[in-house]
């Protein structure tokens, strides 16, 4: 068993930008002494747009192509799980890394249980324990109230899913070798069937890519204020987000939700309005550079992580803020 296998995802026909973060985690482990090189595997029905250049830091690019692997496989992800299990058998990596996305959060654990090896979910750091030669991970627990360091026991393959937005992606162009891995035998046994996918993405900038996010929570009191948030986001070229409380209340769609069970974001500026900052919400902000908080409660948890804050009624603060921003942009 040797080497690190990174399972990357395809976005618009090419290796997703977030995969660079996995390569950063893999490079860290390799730098600490995991030998055998870094392989990056991708799967899909049409991989003609994938090149080694899209995988900087990978020694080897492995293409797994099959109609059953279209869009990450069928709804139950049977085909990806079976394909990666076959690849694992053929290459026996020491470590397998996934991103904790809709895809990785399911396929990583399923693969682990299929192989009978442990998996660490939603990791914010990975490190090689020089004493044991095994990997240790750091992951948030209790909704982010605490952090836990786990070590892999035994001597089997070690599987981890990495929280998006935590590692800085490897930049540049890759120059690894390219090979194909035939999965046609493996994918035949898929059971669950994807009937359709309904996309409810908000228009404009994607939250995951946004450099500026204007986010609202319970303190806004209803759906209407989100129009003001959108207006500000439009001026700044940003996106609107929300806490789970605002989504569960039905004020905005769940696709706006940021946090432990929503999206992980990494804007330069995260302006939170009427959000108390429970650890479950902050869990989605690990990658946010500057948190700016407007809240009427000066003791709110959000101020512990914020760089700038205004204490008071958002309904009076926000219009003046927006007007000033508009003048400055003028």
């Amino acid at each position: 068993m040797s080497g690190i296998l990174v399972i990357a995802e395809i976005e618009n026909g090419v290796i997703s930008a977030a995969s660079g973060e996995l390569l950063a985690a893999a490079s860290k482990l390799a730098g600490e002494g995991v030998s055998g090189g870094i392989s990056l595997a991708v799967m899909g029905d049409d991989l003609s747009g994938v090149t080694a250049a899209q995988a900087p830091g990978a020694d080897r690019l492995i293409l797994m192509s099959d109609p059953a692997l279209k869009d990450g496989g069928t709804g139950g992800y049977d085909a990806p799980v079976l394909s990666i299990a076959a690849l694992n058998e053929s290459t026996s990596p020491y470590v397998i890394l996934f991103a904790k996305t809709d895809f990785g959060a399911v396929v990583g654990p399923r693969l682990a249980f299929k192989l009978g090896v442990p998996v660490a979910q939603d990791c914010m750091d990975v490190a090689l324990d020089s004493g044991s030669g095994r990997v240790a991970v750091t992951r948030p627990v209790f909704g982010g109230n605490a952090m836990a360091v786990y070590g892999f026991t035994g001597d089997g393959t070690q599987i981890a899913t990495i929280r998006p937005g935590v590692f800085d992606a490897v930049e540049g162009e890759g120059s690894g070798s390219v090979e194909e891995f035939d999965v046609s035998g493996a994918v035949a046994a898929a059971r669950s069937v994807l009937v359709e996918t309904v996309v409810q993405a908000s228009e404009g900038v994607r939250l995951e890519d946004a450099d500026v996010i204007i986010s609202g929570g319970r303190g806004l009191g209803g759906p209407e204020p989100f129009e003001q948030l959108q207006e500000l986001a439009d001026i700044l070229g940003g996106a609107v987000g929300a806490s789970r409380a605002a989504c569960d209340a039905g004020w905005v769609d769940h696709s706006y939700q940021i946090g432990l069970t929503g999206k992980s974001v990494k804007p330069t500026v995260y302006l939170s309005i009427g959000i108390s900052g429970a650890s479950q919400h902050m869990a989605g902000l690990s990658g946010a550079r500057n948190i700016v908080a407007i809240n009427k409660d000066g003791d709110a948890n959000i101020f512990k992580s914020a760089r700038f804050g205004v204490i008071g009624d958002w309904a009076k603060i926000l219009p003046a803020f927006t007007a000033t921003v508009r003048d400055l942009a003028g």
Binding site: Y150, I294, S305, K316
Partner: peptide, 28 residues
């Protein structure tokens, strides 16, 4: 299968700069 080696509450050193004004609009 995973050994819990350490459990801790992360330090959060609050360094928030609270912006104040004559009134709430001015602070905004």
């Amino acid at each position: 299968a995973l050994e819990l080696q350490r459990l801790f509450i992360p330090e959060s050193e609050s360094q928030v700069e609270i912006i104040e004004g004559e009134d709430e609009a001015d602070a905004g």
